[in-house]
Design a protein around this nucleic acid. Sequence first.
DNA 1: CTGCACCTTCCCATCATGGTAAGGTCAAGT
DNA 2: ACTTGACCTTACCATGATGGGAAGGTGCAG
Lengths: 133, 133
Amino acid sequence: MQIGEASRLTGVSAKMIRHYEAIGLIPSADRRDSNYRDYGHHDIHRLGFIRRARDLGFSIDQIRDLLRLWGDTHRSSADVKALTQTHIAELDAKIRLMGEMRATLANLSAACDGDHRPDCPIIEGLAGMPHRH
Amino acid sequence: MQIGEASRLTGVSAKMIRHYEAIGLIPSADRRDSNYRDYGHHDIHRLGFIRRARDLGFSIDQIRDLLRLWGDTHRSSADVKALTQTHIAELDAKIRLMGEMRATLANLSAACDGDHRPDCPIIEGLAGMPHRH
DNA sequence: CTGCACCTTCCCATCATGGTAAGGTCAAGT
DNA sequence: ACTTGACCTTACCATGATGGGAAGGTGCAG
């Protein structure tokens, strides 16, 4: 099948399929006489795997590792679990950071009347809040 | 003062100070005879404002708006509050998305023995989890 | 006068993705 | 046979926020 159908089936844009080929995440696709790329269900399966890993927030490099582990019948499940735990820890760190930002903003916002007058604790906070490095 | 000291005082890298000038977030700095940029405490104040807004996750475009509101004595605090609420909503959306990823990953991970054997629900999930959407 | 810290501009890289331009391929309709 | 339109190809540029590095100028202290 052509790249467009592969894209429709997997939810990965044609643009990204070509990109994944360029960076070696997937092997070079077969070509028809027309020079069009040609995909089979093995390729679809691999792209689906990548798509789901992306949806779960894995980076390209992590997906590269996951694909290697997927194809390695002698891997231990501990390897996969370790990679996943690392990613969970990364997510936790980001979630925590954004939660702190949110809390600070909510505090400032709650102190702001939000009316027609110019006085605003949010702007004042930004203008003079002490550093915490 | 030179850009290095401005950087030290504000926690904004010299690289980024030049960048903010290039994109018009701050006015072009005065120059000494040496062509070195020269900063005063007004500039330091503005850079500190930017730094704190960045730390709270505001985008450059949002900071541009905040700086305009900061300088506008006739603004209403409602304008500032609205911008802040928009940003809080964006943060909430990201936090929720990452929380969903985290929960899915935690479920897969909990089902994985994490031992020497190759069987792994995480890999199996990625290889065949049905699409949702 | 030399060394060193600092500054300047310019270009390139990241990460994942999209846009666009210029052109080739193919099947269906006239 | 010819046109139309959908599809494909490569190649280049853009995003946002930041860093790296090269090549060269400035200024001060030893």
